[in-house]
Design a binder for these strands. Structure first.
Lengths: 355, 355
DNA sequence: TGCTAGCTTGTAAACGGTTACATCGACAAT
DNA sequence: ATTGTCGATGTAACCGTTTACAAGCTAGCA
C-alpha cells in the first residue's frame, strides 16, 4: 500500500492526497502522547489543567475530528443504532423515527435507516447489512420477522427491540401498543352505539402483524356479543386515500351494507369518508367510520374522525432508551406498553334505523 | 487491554465474551491465507474454482460477516452516506429519503439519517456527527446552511449535494426544483384566471430558502403585471393543517379579502380549504386555493387541490447517484433540475365578481 | 531519608480488515 | 533447457483509535 501520509504542515503537490489530521498530529503539536489526546476527547476531567489546555489548543487549531471507524474497531462498539421500518411515508412512523434519532443523538449514537417495504426477505437483507455496518442495536417494527433474522441478531449479541407491538408473551423484547386490544375497544364502542354490522378496510396483512391484530381485535369484540366478522366484510387495501375509497365501494356493494367501518389507519379512513360523502352517504348517519393514528388532520376534517391516537414518538423515545441502556449493561423491561387513547369525534354515531 | 480472544471452536465460560468470527478464522478453516478470503469477499472471480469453493464453504459454515468498521478503517471509505433533513413528517420528503436509501443500498452504501429541525446550528452539529461517523457523502436539503458546514465538508473532501433546490448559479452542487420559478408559474396561472388580489400562507422562512423562494416567485409573477404583494398578504405558519386554517382566518380578516391564496405546501392548503368551507366560503368561487407537493389526497379532496407535483423520489435517486458516482471519481453535473408539474384541479378558478 | 499511595502521563499492543509487493508455478517461446 | 510472462496465492504493513500496563512524579508520613 502506497504511503500517502504527509505531515499536515508539509507542502503537498496538487495530486497528492492529504492525510486527515489524526490524534498523532494533535499529540505532536501539543507535545503530549497520543494517549493523552484520547483522554482529552473521552474524559477531559482526567487530565491536569495544563495538559488539557495544550491539547485543547491543538485540537481546535487543527480542527481535529475523531475517526469513528477506528474508534469502533478499537472499542468493538460502533455507537450506531439501526432502524428497519417498512416505509417512511407515514406521519406516525415519522414521529417514531424522529424521536429515535433525537434520543440516539443525545446519547452519542448515530442512526442507520433501512427500509423493508413490508417484505420479510428484504428486511432480513437489510438487517444483514446493518450487522455488517456494525450497529450496536436495532429497532424493528412489528414482531413478525424472518426467523433467520432473530437468529442472526441473537447469535451476534446485537441488542434489538420490536416496536409498535406490545406483547408480554413474546419471546422478544417489545415496546408498543396492544393493537388487538385497541381494535377491540374501538369495535366495542361501535357495538355499544348499537351497530351490529361491522366491516373493515384493513391494511395488507401479509407480513404485518399489526394489521392482523387489528382485524383480530375487531373479531374479538364481535365474538363478545355472539357476532362474527364475515370473510367478505374485511377488505385489504394499501394505506392510500384512493385505496380507502375503493375499499368503501367494495364494502357497500355487498348484500348487506355495514353500518360501521373500521379502517386500518386514518389514511384509509380518510378515503372511506370521502367516498361515502361523494356517494351521497351521510357520515355517521348512514355509516360510521373510524381509523387509527390520529393524524394531524383527523380532528380538522369534517365531521371529525373517530380514531385511536398512537403516541408513536413515545415509542421511538423508549426504543432508543431500551437499546442504549441495554448496551450499557442495564436490565430493561422485556415488554413495555404505550397507552393509546380512543378519540371519539363526529365520524361515528348511533346507526340510523334502516327500512 | 485484556485479550478476550477465543478460537471460535473453543468452549467459553458463561461470562466470557466470544470473539466474532473474523477473516482469520475463515482462512484457517479453509486452509488459505487471509488475503484469499478478502479476495473471495470482494472479487470472487479472481480466485481459482478450488479456492473459491473452499472459502465459500468456510464462510457459510462459520456465518462470517465482514466487519464494516475494520473495512472502513483500512479502505479509508465507510460506504455510508449521510442525509440531513429538517423533519421526516412529510410525505414528499419521505419519498426522497426512501429513494435515497434504496439507491444507496443497491450500490452497497448505508444511510445515516440526521434531523435538523429547520435549525442551521443543529444542522451543523449533526453534520459534524456524520463526519465523525465517517460518511463518504452527505445529502443536504436546501442551499442555505451554516457557512462552517460548507467549510467542514470541503476541507475534508466529503462529497455533498444540496437537494430540493435547483440553482445553476450556486457555488455548490444541487439537485432539485426551481422553487421560485414554479411558484411564479402557479401565481401566473392564477393571474391569468383574472385574480388580482393574491395572498400567501407560507411556511416559516427562517433558515428555509425553499419557502423564501416560493414567496419570491409569487412576487415575481405579480411584478410582471405591475402588482405587488403587500407585507400583510403573506402570513407564515408551520406546516400543519390547523395552522393552514389559522392562516386563512388571518388573511380574510384583512381589509381586502384575497381572491386567491397560494400555500407553502398542500398541508397548509388543506387547512385553508377546510377553514374556507367551514366559514361558508366557496372554493374556488369565493377564494381559489393552491399548494405544492401533490400529496396522495390532493386529487381526492373535493374540490380537488390545484398544486405543483414535485417528483421528490427522483431527487433522492439522483442524489444517491450524484454522491456515489462522485465518490467513484466521475464528474457529475453541478446542478440538475427535476421538472415539476403544475396540476390544475377544482380548488382554483376564475374569481367571482365582487360587489 | 526512604517508602508508599495516588495521580498523571506515556508506551505499545490490539481491533479486523485491504492491498502492495513478493513468491510460486505453469506454460509458451526461444 | 532456459527464460519470460502471467495468473493465483501468500506475507505483512498499515488504517487511527482505545486502553492495559508501566513508569514517573508528588506529597505525605514514618
Amino acid at each position: 500500500m502506497v504511503d500517502r501520509r504527509r505531515t499536515p504542515d508539509a507542502h503537498a503537490g496538487p495530486s497528492e492526497v492529504l492525510r486527515q489530521v489524526g490524534m498523532r498530529d494533535v499529540a505532536s503539536r501539543a507535545q503530549v502522547s497520543i494517549a493523552t489526546v484520547s483522554r482529552f476527547i473521552n474524559d477531559p476531567e482526567s487530565l491536569s489543567m495544563a495538559m488539557r489546555e495544550r491539547v485543547e489548543e491543538a485540537v481546535r487549531h487543527l480542527g481535529y475530528i475523531r475517526h469513528g471507524a477506528a474508534r469502533a474497531l478499537s472499542m468493538r462498539r460502533s455507537h450506531a443504532i439501526g432502524a428497519i421500518i417498512p416505509t417512511v411515508d407515514n406521519a406516525t412512523r415519522a414521529g417514531k423515527i424522529a424521536a429515535l434519532q433525537k434520543n440516539c443523538h443525545e446519547q452519542g449514537y448515530n442512526l442507520l435507516l433501512a427500509l423493508s417495504e413490508y417484505d420479510l426477505d428484504v428486511e432480513l437483507q437489510q438487517c444483514r447489512n446493518l450487522v455488517e455496518a456494525g450497529v450496536d442495536g436495532i429497532m424493528l417494527e412489528g414482531g413478525l420477522h424472518h426467523p433467520e433474522l432473530y437468529h442472526l441478531l441473537e447469535s451476534r449479541g446485537i441488542a434489538f427491540v420490536n416496536t409498535i407491538v406490545y406483547d408480554p408473551k413474546s419471546p422478544y423484547p417489545n415496546i408498543g401498543f396492544d393493537n388487538r386490544g385497541m381494535a377491540r375497544r374501538l369495535a366495542d364502542h361501535l357495538l355499544d352505539l348499537g351497530h351490529t354490522s361491522l366491516a373493515m378496510i384493513s391494511g395488507p396483512r401479509a407480513g404485518n402483524d399489526r394489521a392482523r391484530e387489528r382485524v383480530e381485535g375487531v373479531r374479538d369484540a364481535l365474538a363478545g356479543r355472539g357476532l362474527t366478522l364475515a370473510p367478505d366484510a374485511v377488505v385489504e387495501h394499501p394505506y392510500r386515500v384512493a385505496e380507502g375509497r375503493l375499499g368503501l365501494r367494495r364494502l357497500i356493494a355487498r348484500d348487506t351494507m355495514p353500518t360501521a367501518i373500521i379502517c386500518g389507519n386514518d389514511v384509509l379512513a380518510f378515503g372511506a369518508i370521502l367516498e361515502a360523502q361523494s356517494q351521497g352517504l351521510d357520515v355517521p348517519g348512514d355509516v360510521s367510520i373510524a381509523g387509527f393514528d390520529d393524524l394531524d388532520w383527523a380532528s380538522q376534517l369534517p365531521p371529525g374522525l373517530t380514531t385511536v391516537a398512537l403516541p408513536s414518538p413515545e415509542v421511538g423515545r423508549l426504543a432508543a432508551r431500551y437499546l442504549i441502556d441495554t448496551l450499557k449493561g442495564e436490565t430493561m423491561p422485556h415488554a413495555t406498553e404505550v397507552e393509546v387513547r380512543l378519540i371519539l369525534r363526529g365520524s361515528t354515531g348511533v346507526p340510523r334505523p334502516r327500512g
